[in-house]
Design a protein around this nucleic acid. Structure first.
Lengths: 222, 222
DNA sequence: CACCATATGTAACAAAGTTACATAAAAATC
DNA sequence: GATTTTTATGTAACTTTGTTACATATGGTG
């Protein structure tokens, strides 16, 4: 388990602190769909993603979701261990978007190290700021963009991530990503189909005209 | 200028670092409406609010705004000096919501200290996490709440902050806070008026039935 | 093949944003 | 003080998105 490849501050730790980190770090395998952290739980571990993909999202009282950001290989999942930083008072849910492999480190262990080394606190800072950045991007999208452009952008993103034009996604799942509802996504995808941008199948969407989607997804000023 | 009352880590700094901070810290007075930091600028100073109120918001290409959070006495404005933390790639605008007095410290000075002391990095962490928390609350509001309840909650908040039932706010300003548009706010306030929750005057809103607004603003499950 | 869970389709209506003006009150200017 | 200008508010028609309430379709399983 190569912790040093995940932690840029690794070289600054003392031998004993390295040993502590290594002794507490555990490799876990999680199945697609598994909930890794549920906001209401007090505090879980700090996670390093070695393979797969995690999705962080929030859920309303009525069960409506919106994806905040996704985490891929080499990323650090900070808010599964929100207790590392106080003054956080919101519930983020983290699930495995694919079968994934992660390294988990008890929050307390990481916290102790962080309180000892400025470099570790600074790195934690950077990770948090990056997530903040993602959420701010989302805020701009939600407040200022129309749903058709968000949907088009999402389809393209999904296509790029999985390197395929045949997306295995239900309308329901897309709605959950975008903070919308199934009926609206169905309606909009139908429209995309009449425009020959996509072809719809049960449980899947085929991108036919990527350029057309990009035009909708990245409008200069509409 | 009592920096130590603003920085919980003050006692941990060396004498010389304290002197550096104090020598670079400057008191500034800013007028209501003044833009203190515009996202596009590279990096300004770190700010401590000694009196008044600052507002952080984002603006779309078309000029539509939404307030992210507000900062009051004793608060620290981190993102006016976003360069302190790398990996931030979004533009926050900070303006004085009231005539205010602030202490400004050059970002570079603070950054140097932060890189030296874990306690300073941790505190910066806490401040950022608190802002993140605010933005996450807003995200939930924007995605999951109806505008009438957000408007009602905003009127109450505003009333509490200024300790008056006579709010000096135009429909336009309210819309900018909530990320909506003037026409919609006008429409909704008119409705509130027919329900005898508020009384509308040019440039002002008088809260008549606070309990009624609270009922709209804090619905259990709608 | 029948049954069932999941996925999709659709229509009518409600909520919020957009466009495009009209009107009204205050402030500035003459 | 009357006139012009600026700022604030009012409103209607229309679009987009969300809600409610079903209907229909598809693929897997016994």
């Amino acid at each position: 388990m190569e912790l040093k490849t995940y932690f840029p501050f690794w070289d600054k730790l003392s031998i004993s602190d390295k040993e502590i980190m290594e002794s507490f770090a555990k490799i876990k395998k999680v199945k697609k769909g598994e909930i890794i952290h549920n906001g209401t739980e007090n505090c879980s571990d700090l996670l390093l993603i070695t393979d797969g993909q995690l999705r962080a999202y929030i859920m309303s009282e009525e069960g409506k979701e919106i994806t905040l950001y996704r985490m891929f290989e080499r990323d650090m999942c900070l808010f599964s261990a929100a207790c590392i930083v106080n003054s956080i008072e919101f519930d983020i849910i983290v699930e495995a978007a694919l079968d994934s492999e992660i390294i988990s480190i008890p929050a307390e262990v990481y916290k102790n190290i962080m309180e000892k080394y400025a470099a570790v606190a600074l790195y934690t800072n950077e990770v948090m700021a990056a997530k903040f950045s993602d959420v701010m991007w989302l805020m701009d999208q939600v407040v200022n963009k129309k749903l058709d452009s968000r949907l088009a952008a999402f389809l393209i993103e999904e296509s790029d991530i999985n390197n395929t034009k045949e997306l295995k996604l239900t309308h329901e799942k897309i709605a959950r990503h975008l903070g919308s509802v199934r009926e609206v996504i169905t309606r909009m995808l139908k429209y995309f189909q009449t425009e020959e941008l996509v072809k719809l199948n049960r449980g899947g969407i085929e991108i036919i005209n990527r350029d057309g989607l990009e035009k909708i997804g990245e409008p200069s000023i509409r």
